[in-house]
Nucleic acid binder design. Structure first.
Length: 441
RNA sequence: GCGGCUAUAGUUCAGCGGCAGAACGCCUGACUGUGGCUCAGGAUGUCGUGGGUUCGAUCCCCACUAGCCGCCCCA
């Protein structure tokens, strides 16, 4: 006996009715992005390994231990093998495309969004998968197009607040910080190392390790005993140079003018090397250890790091899997029922029933088709689970052209002439939709 | 990569060193063109995989795999 093949660890199948929620999220995101004048970009799901090594950072966890990387086979003896990697995030790919297609030559700000799978080889747990889905966007361009403006940062954050609101996500928190520019960050790191050194021995084992490898991460520690020490460490905000400080203040001022609530989190440190100045996360309780719904920031040096022109930018990535989890926890998504269930009464009515179903479907209705082999009782039972109403098509109906329609919510049975049926069902659907929206508001 | 918990029917789960169980769902009938309620019947399954202990293992032990939770990190 052969053992059945299963989806690999950390990947999963998405099935109806859950997929309806995924589609709704994507549709809402597209609508919102369109209002802010973003266009869609689709980049390959694998790239040369060096793109991520140079872009995301050799020393980050993502690159050093979480990438799916392989040596691509050489087809001819003269050809060299190439190291390729499934994308662990999408910003590096977008910036690569920006450079490759010389978008900087347009002189315009590029506003691009993407929706797609990403891959990281981590231990799966709630809200974390090895293939996961991100919805993200980037604003990038030459400095003279205004790409460095703090207004871009604030606009992106304001857009995210609107998107979450439109999706119906309740209780999110925007955490905001500035991690400094390429010029003032090294100074802060030195100061931080100096401050940690004498107290490191009183901190947890992880922090002692981080003090060496990545001192910024010490700020992220959640061990209770360490909190007092961490609070006493120097803050990034005090090490920012005049330009960075003014930039951050301008972002905050614009958010306040737009009434987007935020909290400053001077300990918000993100794990990708390319971030400069503004960094942010939208978090949500109820997601367990993975409380970040989305994260992002400014990356003024990324383009140059991977061989492109100076092209400052800001972007974010939304964890679509986590959005789904949050919305599912908020509301039990009701499985969508078909508008009508066409029930042939007797197998002789099967062909005519297909014709009727086609008629209704072409009118835009969601229709399920039964089988004349079912007894009417069985058709009723099945239809009640799958559709809002049943349409009986037997000898009588076929002869008279007047169909029997039974609505399951009211148990009322009516006779409707075939010519009026589609219009009648469409009207009923519009009414139901209106009622539902009213209830929501 | 590290630690903890878990794995039995389609689903949620109980169980016990000696016949494999419940609820819900599913199928059939009572009811030949009328569902939801009811009643009567029925089918569920290599008890995650492999090994060990034992007269005998779904149960005890070991390994593996997968899931969940936490750590690390991140979306």
């Amino acid at each position: 006996m052969t053992t059945p093949v299963k989806a690999v660890r950390g990947t999963r199948d998405l099935l109806p009715p859950e997929t309806a929620l995924w589609s709704r999220i994507e549709a809402t995101a597209r609508e919102v992005f369109a209002r802010y004048n973003f266009g869609e970009i689709r980049t390959p799901i694998f790239e040369e390994t060096t793109l991520f090594a140079r872009g995301v950072g050799e020393e980050t966890d993502i690159v050093s231990k979480e990438m799916y990387t392989w040596e691509d086979r050489a087809r001819a003896q003269s050809e060299k093998t190439q190291s390729l990697t499934l994308r662990p995030e999408n910003t590096a790919g977008v910036v690569r495309a920006y450079i490759e297609h010389k978008l900087s030559e347009t002189g315009q700000l590029q506003k691009l969004f993407y929706i797609g799978p990403q891959f990281r080889r981590e231990r799966p747990q709630k809200g974390r998968y090895r293939q996961f889905f991100q919805i993200g966007a980037e604003v990038i361009g030459p400095p003279h197009a205004g790409s460095e403006s703090p207004l871009r940062d604030a606009e992106v954050l304001e857009m995210l607040a609107s998107l979450l609101e439109e999706l119906g996500i309740e209780g999110w928190t925007l955490r905001l910080n500035s991690v400094g520019s390429a010029s003032d960050r090294p100074a802060y790191l030195a100061k931080l190392r100096e401050a940690i050194a004498p107290v490191a021995h009183r901190m947890c084992a992880d922090c002692q390790r981080r003090a060496e490898t990545n001192p910024l991460r010490v700020l992220d520690c959640k061990v209770a005993e360490d909190q007092e020490i961490i609070e006493s460490l120097p803050r990034i905000a005090d090490s920012l140079d005049e330009a960075s400080r003014a930039h951050f203040a301008a972002v905050c001022a614009a958010l306040e003018a737009a009434r987007v609530p935020y909290t400053l989190d001077h300990r918000l440190v993100r794990g990708l090397d390319y971030y400069t100045r503004t960094t942010f996360e939208f978090t949500h309780g109820g997601l367990g250890a993975q409380n970040a719904l989305l994260g992002g920031g400014r990356y003024d040096g990324l383009s140059e790091a991977i061989g492109g022109p100076k092209a400052p930018g800001i972007g974010f990535a939304i964890g679509q899997d986590r959005l789904v989890l949050t919305l599912q926890a908020q509301e039990q998504e009701e499985a969508e029922r078909a508008d009508a269930w066409v029930a042939p009464v007797g197998e002789a009515q099967n062909p005519a029933s297909l014709a009727l179903a086609r008629e209704l479907r072409r009118a835009g209705l969601r229709v399920e088709l039964g089988d004349g082999g079912f007894r009417v009782r069985k058709s009723m039972e099945v239809a009640d689970r799958q559709a809002r109403r049943i349409i009986l098509l037997g000898e009588d109906e076929l002869a008279s052209g007047v169909l029997t329609v039974k609505d399951f919510s009211t148990a009322v049975q009516t006779k409707i002439p075939r010519a009026e049926l589609a219009a009648h069902l469409l009207a009923a659907r519009a009414e139901a939709k209106q009622k539902k929206e009213k209830q929501r508001a």
